[in-house]
């Protein structure tokens, strides 16, 4: 069961390469004058990586067929935190999301647990499209890549949640 899910994951599981600083200097001068640019004649706007991670996390969860985000260790910690009182009881929005943010570009890695029965190829594509659309619309950053890793498949009950044991 795990083999189909592996075949649909993105080939690059390794950490995203940092965005070369030279890419920032290649933007044409005319782009800096537009009202939709992060760098203008009057000043510049910098967007933190935590902002991009939150937007990407929410965008990924919007797709039907996503059960959870994060690798197994993160999800375990999230479960433990959910038993703690109030302030720590919410699941972190950025769980399972890694981002690299430059001045004008962003690269995003996301790890998913999907529901059984959905097309993993379509799911990964939908997640990628939605993350790119949301991040580019809200932040103006160009999303260079979204690497989707499908970490597990959810079979509907607790005993079957870890497909690798079956």
């Amino acid at each position: 069961m795990s083999s189909p899910s592996r075949s649909t994951t993105s080939s690059s599981e390794e950490p995203t390469q940092s965005i070369p600083s030279s890419a920032n200097s290649k933007v044409s001068p005319s782009k800096t004058n537009t009202n939709n640019s992060l760098v203008t004649d009057h000043g510049k706007t910098a967007i933190s990586s935590s902002v991009v991670a939150k937007i990407a996390g929410i965008a990924a969860r919007e797709i039907a067929g996503i059960h959870d985000l994060g690798k197994s260790g993160e999800r375990t910690m999230g479960t433990i935190k959910s038993y703690l009182p109030n302030s720590l009881s919410t699941t972190s929005t950025t769980q399972g999301v890694d981002v690299e943010v430059g001045e004008r570009q962003a690269a995003i890695d996301v790890d998913l647990v999907c529901d059984y029965g959905v097309s993993l190829v379509d799911l990964a594509q939908a997640v990628r499209q939605n993350i790119i659309q949301r991040v580019e619309t809200m932040t103006g950053l160009e999303v260079t890549e979204v690497n989707v890793g499908i970490d597990d498949i959810y079979l509907g009950d607790d005993s079957g949640s870890d497909s690798s044991n079956q």
Partner: peptide, 18 residues
């Protein structure tokens, strides 16, 4: 003076910052 705006965080819908 030049102005630099840093958006350090974003308030999530409905529940504020996490």
């Amino acid at each position: 003076k030049e102005i630099e705006v840093y958006i350090d965080d974003i308030e999530l819908p409905g529940k504020g910052d996490v």
